[in-house]
């Protein structure tokens, strides 16, 4: 984690604070942007907090509106979503990020 290139001091503070608490922090790469996320909450809400607009509708895993490309890395679902998740995609509203990941919207 210490090798991460920090884009702002506040992010660094967040990540240091969370690392002290023993929480895992992962990098989410989206184009040229980099967002730090924890395993405490689903990806969608953390992306939104970082000011990234993600399409959504139900926010509970059945509508598939928040489906985005997962280029690499691991996510898990605490509850299996009702929506069909295409291979190579994730459902942002209920996915918990478990490693550094890279995501992408439409081509």
């Amino acid at each position: 984690m210490t090798q991460i290139l920090m884009t702002s001091t506040s992010k660094k503070e967040i990540s240091e604070k969370q690392e002290r608490k023993g929480q895992a922090v992962h990098r989410v790469l989206l184009g040229k942007k980099q967002i730090l996320v924890t395993e405490e909450e689903p990806l969608l809400i953390q992306l939104e907090r970082a000011g990234i607009h993600v399409e959504y509708q139900c926010r509970e895993g059945y509508c598939s509106s928040c489906s985005i490309k997962l280029l690499w890395g691991n996510v898990i679902y605490p509850f299996e979503p009702l929506a069909w998740v295409q291979s190579g995609y994730l459902l942002a509203c209920c996915a918990i990020v478990k490693s550094d990941i890279e995501i992408a919207f439409f081509d």
Binding site: H53, E55, Y56, Q57, C58, R59, E60, S65, F105, F106, D107
Partner: peptide, 22 residues
């Protein structure tokens, strides 16, 4: 399916706050 249209962003993002069921 591969996407067809050039529009990659939601021009009326406020609609999602109405569509959300929570």
């Amino acid at each position: 399916l591969e996407t067809h249209f050039a529009t990659k962003n939601n021009p009326i993002p406020w609609i999602n706050a109405w569509l959300v069921s929570d």
